[in-house]
């Protein structure tokens, strides 16, 4: 554990909780992509199956349980409790285009051919692109609520901070896991456009709207 990873995890946690609280408080999930949330639920489920097979630390286990519960809680709010507020007309990204290639890639480029390892790798590849339906939705509607922008910024920052963590770990522990590092870089690059808009608009008190 180092400061970059801790900040990354806290940023990740903040993003997930921010989304959950926003939906709960406003009683609405307008502007949120249900498809991205489905993908994140698949990501957490396939990655954190190791809750039952390997123990790293209390910290890791608690975070995994929180991520899983919050993710399924978000799905419950979006597709059940506040379903009428779900803007499915604008949430039109085809997620099979992400699910299938990520699955194929996880069989091609993987550290070891065991069920848990392939599932872990799949979760890494899928996470890298899971935000695409949400970004697509923002581009279709041309705007995002400020709180949604904060959510996206925290979620994007998490992997960027993990990149710093991997650089640090490379020099201090000789840690080098190219699968997660390259996927993490791809994931962060996808947010770059959004980061630019966030810094130039949202931080100056303006609403995020596309020209």
């Amino acid at each position: 554990m180092n400061i970059f990873r801790l900040c990354g995890d806290l940023s990740h946690l903040l993003a997930i909780l921010l989304l959950l609280v926003k939906i709960w408080k406003t009683r609405s999930c307008a502007g949120i992509s249900g498809k991205s949330q489905i993908l994140f639920a698949i990501v957490y489920t396939t990655r954190y199956l190791d809750l039952f097979t390997s123990f790293v630390s209390i910290y890791n286990s608690v975070m995994k349980i929180v991520f899983l519960s919050a993710s399924y809680g978000t799905l419950y709010l979006m597709f059940y409790k506040f379903k009428p507020t779900y803007d499915h007309n604008h949430d039109s990204f085809r997620i099979l285009y992400l699910i299938v290639p990520a699955l194929v890639l996880s069989f091609v480029i993987v550290h070891a051919y065991t069920l848990m390892e392939v599932l872990w790798t799949y979760s890494i590849y899928l996470e890298a692109v899971a935000i695409m339906p949400q970004l697509f939705m923002v581009s279709r509607t041309g705007e995002a609520e400020t709180i949604t922008s904060h959510y996206l910024f925290a979620l994007g920052s998490y992997r960027a901070l993990y990149i710093l963590n991997w650089i640090y770990r490379y020099y201090t522990e000789d840690f080098l896991d190219l699968i997660v590092i390259i996927a993490g870089i791809v994931q962060t690059i996808l947010y770059c456009d959004f980061f630019y808009l966030y810094i130039t608009k949202v931080l100056k008190g303006k609403r995020l709207s596309l020209p």
Binding site: D9, H12, T53, T114, L115, W120
Partner: peptide, 10 residues
């Protein structure tokens, strides 16, 4: 053998 490959991150 540890099938989880020692993934210690989240």
């Amino acid at each position: 053998q540890d099938s989880s490959f020692g993934h210690d991150e989240l």
